[in-house]
């Protein structure tokens, strides 16, 4: 596509906005990551010859957090897509009270994350929370859900899925409604089973919506902050700390801006590579499908 002068001019405001909110901060991070800028330098940037990057490479905590962030994002997004699809298919059925049901499904999505996380923290409280009260009424001892790394991680994922599945479901529901009903009707008349319709018609036509939900959710989940900060504070023993939380601590609590910028930039690069690879894979899959399979 060739850009005419008028078109380029029309794109200029959007481009300027992108530069201001995206490119400038990135360049600034890049510049700051080459400096020591902490309480010990009086918050003034002092060039430190790549010491921040060297520290990052040797920083066990950064890599551990990176692994934890990826694990969290992949698990929760996978569950959200699967669950969201199920919910969307259910809400697409001509049920009585469907409107009310759809509104109810959206409730968790409408709640502020902080409030939701505080609620979960209370539910899981050991020993006073309702979940432990239920356990004890069954004769079992109370359990430290938020002091055992495995269960803490599990509930962090669960809380995220609970909150954002409605978003995915809503997106996919819109997709479902864009599929012409007569296509489905035709397939059914030709004797296709429900599973066949889902596999051959619904899912392929939903792919654009699925990939949109995937990219949205992945970008959000990889930057998870508020849920972790409120629910676990990164604990126990740092086992749920995410990269965003680590960057935040470096900047706001440790006042170590040079290193915080390095962590942010490294996180950004990591995510850009990941999302880029994901996008390429999706595109290849789509081309493969439209051209009738890979060579």
């Amino acid at each position: 596509m060739k850009l005419s002068g008028a078109k380029a001019l029309l794109m200029l405001p959007a481009l300027l906005l992108l530069v201001a909110v995206f490119l400038y901060p990135l360049l600034r991070y890049g510049w700051l990551s080459g400096h020591a800028s902490s309480v010990l330098t009086g918050l003034r940037p002092v060039p430190n010859g790549g010491a921040n990057w060297q520290r990052l490479i040797e920083d066990v905590r950064f890599w551990k957090d990176a692994g934890q962030t990826l694990r969290f994002a992949f698990c929760s997004v996978a569950l959200e897509l699967a669950g969201g699809l199920g919910v969307a298919l259910l809400l697409h059925q001509p049920l009585r009270g469907r409107g009310t049901l759809r509104a109810l499904t959206l409730l968790p999505w409408a709640l502020p994350t902080t409030v939701m996380a505080l609620g979960w923290r209370w539910i899981l409280n050991d020993p006073h929370g309702p979940l432990n009260a239920a356990l004890r009424s069954l004769g079992a001892p109370s359990y430290g859900f938020l002091t055992t790394p495995a269960t803490t991680w599990f509930f962090a994922v669960l809380a995220d899925v609970w909150k954002t599945m409605p978003f995915v479901a809503l997106l996919l529901l819109a997709g479902l409604q864009s599929i012409p009903a007569d296509l489905e009707e035709t397939l059914r008349l030709e004797g296709a089973s429900r599973i066949q319709i889902l596999r051959r018609l619904t899912l392929p036509l939903l792919v654009p919506y699925l990939s949109l939900a995937l990219l949205f959710r992945l970008a959000q989940a990889l930057g998870v902050f508020d849920l972790i900060q409120v629910l676990t504070g990164g604990g126990p023993g740092g086992s749920t700390e995410s990269l965003s939380l680590y960057a935040y601590l470096n900047a706001m609590r440790f006042l170590d801006f040079g290193y915080a910028a390095t962590v942010m930039l490294a996180t950004f690069l990591l995510l850009a590579v990941l999302l880029g690879v994901g996008w390429l894979l999706l595109r290849r899959a789509r081309i493969a499908r439209t051209t009738g399979g890979p060579a």
Partner: peptide, 30 residues
């Protein structure tokens, strides 16, 4: 907290805390 939740033994936890503390102090001022 990692030690208390059974992820590390006391000696290992303290050795790790010491090593990381010195690393942080070094990198903050050079």
């Amino acid at each position: 907290n990692g030690m208390l939740t059974g992820q590390e033994a006391p000696a290992a936890a303290m050795a790790s805390a010491q090593r990381q503390s010195l690393q942080v102090l070094r990198s903050m001022v050079g």
